[in-house]
Design a protein around this nucleic acid. Sequence first.
DNA 1: CCTATAAAGACATCAGATGTTTCCTGAGTT
DNA 2: AACTCAGGAAACATCTGATGTCTTTATAGG
Lengths: 227, 227
Amino acid sequence: MALTDDAITRLRTMIQLGELPPGSRLPTEAQLSTQMGISRSGVREAVKVLEAARVLDVRRGDGTYVTSLAPRLLLEGLGVAVELLRDDTLMEVMEVRRMLEPAATGAAALRMSDAELDELGQILEDMRAAKDDAERLIGYDAAFHRTVIAATGNETLTSLLDGLSGQTLRARVWRGLIEGNSAHVTLSEHEAIYLALRSRDPLLAQASALLHVNTSESWLRTVLSAA
Amino acid sequence: MALTDDAITRLRTMIQLGELPPGSRLPTEAQLSTQMGISRSGVREAVKVLEAARVLDVRRGDGTYVTSLAPRLLLEGLGVAVELLRDDTLMEVMEVRRMLEPAATGAAALRMSDAELDELGQILEDMRAAKDDAERLIGYDAAFHRTVIAATGNETLTSLLDGLSGQTLRARVWRGLIEGNSAHVTLSEHEAIYLALRSRDPLLAQASALLHVNTSESWLRTVLSAA
DNA sequence: CCTATAAAGACATCAGATGTTTCCTGAGTT
DNA sequence: AACTCAGGAAACATCTGATGTCTTTATAGG
């Protein structure tokens, strides 16, 4: 299986070298087929792979374009990958989050604007109001962390941590929390993070984020060992 | 464009739900085509996407199988993504490494075996011997860090950091180092990391790793601003 | 100048044929 | 009984051509 993979590599190389800059339009399938000396089927498979990787944007009836190549696009696949990981490797993911999330939260403490802090406070209130609705709680939880991390202004970091906190993973942690009647603990941990950020205290923010990740890790371990 | 994407989602869901466990064999293209009600072309494109994501392993003349779904496979795509990032987002990647690599190195200090330490010492010696050969230096540099991170025993972490330290990125940092006649600085930084690990001193290891990443970040900034 | 329709261009999908590779079976041999 | 190897079946790889559908653009009419 060389032809199609060659085509993938060739397209990727052209993009990497800047011959096909972000936003530019690719030749048509027929032209690519001729240029690369393979059939249109092969071209289509190659393009499909790069489209799935958010490198190309195929617009039916129009043409195929190179995306912006923004981190948020290219790192989108990480989330999908994490969702497919087997249970026995999820603790590894949590260990990475334990390393990354406190540091990111600490950085956010120095960069968060007043408006972002207000937004965060609002999410906290929403959480309190929804404390008996697991579904909404999980949503607010995700929003809370996304808001914090996004405040670092680092899109790559945001996308990575977003991918590492996949929906399924988050849902499992919450299942543990709820079954263990400990949702209130998490709420107070969120409050601690919020207060630290509000004080723009990076060390305190880092510490409270670590405690929070650690709690999640514990409950995930519980859920996984129960299965 | 729904049919093929539906097929991708359906296959991914089946794998996620465990209906197609790691190592299992998929129905043939013809059977999938019938089951999903789309043409073989569509099936092939879907399978190709999942093959590129290292979710499926297609063996010509044999059949298509689900891979082990090991982190090292599923996270392989991260490296490719990083290689495609535009220059103006590379500093974001370095900031993530700044957060992650010190923590990982600190963890390695507690977990590294004597054999691994010896291996690391050997790589250091190789680096000293190759101090005028940029190509080999870069190779040993990569080997050094891979060995350290791998000692954490966390395959997910290893794959992530490996992807974040793409070849191109590393080569650029080294180009800056060499043009700035500062390769020797990096060598001594590696020695500091090695000594900290040898002493199994997590805080010292973390600190020396941070200094090292910081140096890389500075040189990358130099290289990028020159362009 | 605006609008609606027609035409052209491009991707989406399908169907069928042919080439290659791998695996397995069975005949023959030792 | 075990081993070897040729043959065939199964499965993926690739190509070709036709048809459908959508988008964009050009054009004719108001």
